[in-house]
Design a protein around this nucleic acid. Structure first.
Lengths: 208, 208
DNA sequence: CCAATTCTGTAACGATCGACACAGAATATG
DNA sequence: CATATTCTGTGTCGATCGTTACAGAATTGG
C-alpha cells in the first residue's frame, strides 16, 4: 500500500486524549480542546479515530491498559488476599489524588456516572467497574477456597464492600482528599476483614 | 404590585427540574428537556429561575431539603452512633437503587464529578458532599466524647471510611446494584466498627 | 376605564458543537 | 516519471445549545 505517512504519533495523541477526557469528561472535552491537546487537526483525528465517541472508547481502553495494572496488580500480588486488598487500597491512596502527572480520581469510577454520556461509552465504563468487582470477587473467592477466609464468608458482600471503599475514595480524591486522609479510610476498611481485630487500625495512636 | 400572575406552580416545576437533573446531569438536561418536563416555556422559566445554572442550584437545594432528611436523619436518630451509622447505610440500600419514584444514585454524590460542570455548581455540590462528611464526623465525635467509642479512635479516618462506603454504594446503585446487594456491602462495613466482632455480619449464613 | 406591571408564547439570536468537503502535499508501487 | 493512495490544512456545514426581543394577554392600583 501507498499513501502519505501519518505525521503524528498515534499512541502519544491517544494518551493526550486520555488525559483530557480523564480531567474533563466526555462532553466538556470539545474537539477543539482535543485537537490542541493532541497536536492534530480535526480531519486527521477523524481519519485516525473515526469519531469523538470512538476516540473516547480508545482512550478508556488505553487507560485500563496503562493506568490499571499499577493499581490493580497489587490485588493479586499479595501473599494473602487480605494483603492483596490492603495493598490495593493503600496503593490507591497514592494514585487517586491529583499529582503532577495525573488528574485526580479514577477515569473509570467517575466516568459516565450521569446519563449525559453516549450509551456505548456508558456500557464500556460500566464494564470496567464490573471488572473491578469481578477482580475483587476472584481474589476473595480464592481465599475462601484455600482456607484463608471462613467457608461461611459472604463473598459477594465482602467484594462489593471493598469496591465501595475504592470507589468512594475516588470521589473524595476528586474533592481534594490527600493521600494521608484516604489512608485513614483504607486502614479503617481493613478492620472489616473477617477474623481481624486490630483496634489500632482505627485509632489515632496508630498514625505516625 | 400588579402584573399578570404566574400560571405554573413554581415548586412543582422545580421538583420536575430536580428529577431531570438527577437523572441526566447538568449538560445532558437541555433547556428543551427541562421545558417539557416542567411544563413551561423558556421565557417563563428564565423569568422564574434566572438561568439554567441558577435553576440547577435551586434544584440541588431542593434535593438536599426534600431527599436528604429521609436518609440522613437516621444518622442522628439512632440510640448509639453505631446504630445511627448502620441505619444510615441500611436506609441508603433502599433509597439509592432506582425505584418507581426516584432515579438511581445520589444527585449530590454523582454530580459534578467530572470537570464538565460550571464552577458554581461544582462548588455547591462539593459542599454537600463535605457536609455529609461533617455529619458523620459529628456523630462519631460525639460517640468518642460520651464513651461509646475509645478515646483513641481516629475520628477522621472512621468518618471518611463510612463516607466512602456511602459514596461507593451510590455508584454501584447507578450501575444497577439491588438493595440486597448493597445491604451486603453495608453489613460488611459495620464489621469495621471499633470494638465490633460479629463474623456473622460477613458470612453468608447471616443472610435470609 | 386607564395605566402600570408582569407573565405567556412565538420566533429568533449568536455561539458552539461534532463532523466533513475539498484541494494540495507526501509517500509507495509500477 | 506516472499513478494510486493516504494524510494534512482550510474552511465550512447543519444541528443544537442557552438565551432573549418582542408583542400580546392578564392582572392590580388609581
Amino acid at each position: 500500500m501507498a499513501g502519505r505517512p501519518r505525521e503524528f504519533d498515534r499512541e502519544a495523541a491517544l494518551e493526550a486524549a486520555m488525559f483530557l477526557f480523564w480531567r474533563k469528561g466526555f462532553e466538556a472535552a470539545s474537539m477543539q480542546d482535543l485537537c490542541e491537546a493532541m497536536g492534530v487537526r480535526s480531519p486527521s483525528l477523524y481519519a485516525a479515530f473515526e469519531s469523538k465517541e470512538a476516540l473516547y472508547l480508545a482512550a478508556i481502553e488505553h487507560y485500563v491498559l496503562t493506568q490499571g495494572p499499577p493499581v490493580w496488580d497489587k490485588l493479586t500480588e499479595g501473599k494473602t488476599a487480605r494483603a492483596g486488598v490492603e495493598n490495593l487500597l493503600i496503593g490507591a491512596t497514592e494514585t487517586l489524588p491529583k499529582s503532577r502527572t495525573a488528574p485526580a480520581g479514577c477515569m473509570a469510577v467517575l466516568g459516565a456516572v450521569s446519563d449525559e454520556w453516549p450509551a456505548t461509552i456508558a456500557r464500556a465504563i460500566k464494564k470496567v467497574r464490573l471488572d473491578m468487582l469481578a477482580n475483587l470477587r476472584a481474589r476473595i473467592e480464592g481465599a475462601v477456597a484455600n482456607g484463608e477466609l471462613p467457608a461461611a464468608t459472604d463473598i459477594d458482600a465482602l467484594s462489593r464492600f471493598y469496591l465501595s471503599v475504592f470507589q468512594g475514595m475516588a470521589i473524595q480524591a476528586k474533592d481534594g482528599a490527600t493521600p494521608e486522609e484516604l489512608r485513614g479510610a483504607a486502614k479503617a476498611a481493613m478492620a472489616a476483614w473477617p477474623g481481624d481485630r486490630s483496634p489500632a487500625s482505627v485509632s489515632a495512636a496508630s498514625r505516625p
